[in-house]
Design a protein around this nucleic acid. Sequence first.
DNA 1: CTGAAAGCGCTAACAA
DNA 2: TTGTTAGCGCTTTCAG
Lengths: 338, 338
Amino acid sequence: MTNKKITLTDIAKELGVSKTLVSLVLNGKGNANAINKETQQKVINKAKELNYKPNQVARGLRTGTTKTIGLLVADISNPFYARIARIIEHYADIEGYSLIACSSDEDEEREKKLIRMLTNRQVDGIIMASTLQEPEAIKQLIDQKYPVVLFDRYFRELDCNYVGVDNKEAAFQAVSLFIRKGHKNIGFLTLTPDHISTLKDRRHGYVKALENSGISLQSDLMLELNYEELKNKHYNQIKEFIIKNNQITALFTTNNSLAVGCMEAIKELGLKIPDDISLITFDDVELFKYTSPSLSSIAQPVEEIGKQAVSILLKQLKTGELENIRKELKANLIIRES
Amino acid sequence: MTNKKITLTDIAKELGVSKTLVSLVLNGKGNANAINKETQQKVINKAKELNYKPNQVARGLRTGTTKTIGLLVADISNPFYARIARIIEHYADIEGYSLIACSSDEDEEREKKLIRMLTNRQVDGIIMASTLQEPEAIKQLIDQKYPVVLFDRYFRELDCNYVGVDNKEAAFQAVSLFIRKGHKNIGFLTLTPDHISTLKDRRHGYVKALENSGISLQSDLMLELNYEELKNKHYNQIKEFIIKNNQITALFTTNNSLAVGCMEAIKELGLKIPDDISLITFDDVELFKYTSPSLSSIAQPVEEIGKQAVSILLKQLKTGELENIRKELKANLIIRES
DNA sequence: CTGAAAGCGCTAACAA
DNA sequence: TTGTTAGCGCTTTCAG
């Protein structure tokens, strides 16, 4: 394996020219610097011949820019985040950026560690759906002029780029639909940590819809599930919840995993959706169309969210100006059988 | 924004010691080098006080190791790869490695570009499910002593670490089950590019099961779908296929997206699974349990695949020895209603 | 116990 | 039109 790594210096030496010359040519700045066409061609040929590979790390150290974006979410394998990741990867790639993807597992300490990791790695910017309660760690980034785009989740107290949907309105619409259909005892299932903005907003939408129709809020009908338990598919709490509150005829869940948990629990209890209990969930998953029954859901404009997130980040990377762009999109209530 | 970046030199200067000293201490090599406890503490305190962040890029340039793993798959948002990604992230993280994740879209040229990108970025190793026909680009990596672990897909002609399942056997079992249930006209749906080892092996399993039962192979009953079309949810070909071959009573699909396409097509044709057509698919997705009807599938031991892939890679990263480890695991046929 | 100095591979002033 | 030089921030001999 003769394959010693080829560097700029190797090419320069072989050709008897300077590193600068080679660097310029290989970076397409040959013409701008009025370098002899012939010389340019020689350099290019030699680079190909030696199978030269520019060392991005060295370039990164020198230029202070790594062409890398950090993507931080709760769980990269959750269909919602997985789809967003793919879209972000796509748009980032167009501009030559790669993604370091990481999952916080809804663990605040872990998220802080990951933020540190990403900045240590000198990623040029971060796109994240944060699980933090206090955005102090993110504020520090911004104070250091670090480009950050939040998506899905925001912080009221923090001036930061953001793209997401109007969660309160979407939840309001879904629950209002239940009410119009005559449901009075509508359960609300959500996750902890419950300080997450999306979850809070969805809860507000639920409460508002009830208020709006003069239905009094029963705190019994609201259940919070622990993220870890949910991840390990411990659906017992959901079952107990349904048994204890057997007046419930409709359920609103704040994410796709909860909806799956409900399907399982309801099935195990021998109940039927929607005959016994109706279900609408936040976040659409492709297969919800084919479940039994097909699940009604609130679909976020995933493509647009990912695209906007990258677009905002890249703009600020290019200009160096950290504006403060907030995009609130509309979610789409998809009514199916459930 | 006083936040100039703090470097080792800054700490050294403030303390009136050398960079070496600081570097040693901060890397936990203080004791090994018999550095004064007090001095060590001073360094650590000062680092904390100044909020020092080690620059990984600089370290990477110096040490030639970036603590980064490249993950290359067809589509990071496909549930199968998304789950694997999460697991790989988990095990890599334990050892301090991060992931650059990228999707080839089953495009050979794009994959080659991504491989180049990853090596330019000096990732320490690559874990990939390759879409290539000729593994030349991967062979080059290995020749350069670049640690590579293939998963899911392998190359017969290439000596390279690999972890995956026995695809032929799994497909054989699934199709044999169809036959035992009395099916004679069993359709086979797969993807292009069809040189991919998993797809070939699954096809072989299908053929072998038929042969084994003395059922003659009808090439009409085998359909290949283009990846791009599938991604764009163009299921018309599947519909036409089913209409043209209305003797089909069972379908075997080689991946989860194809199964979804079949469900859609069969539904649109007003047919019922499994009454009119039975379905078994490769790759299990959580929601297959809840679809209507629930889908029988071949589940790969995802956790084990991801864990092994990381383990093999890290071992070779540590020892510098590129052995050639091949792990073939067993897939699990999950029989549901379809 | 601590420090000086070299150098990883690259880019960018500045010279020539 | 091309070359010299310095230096990004870090680790690591080698000397003291």
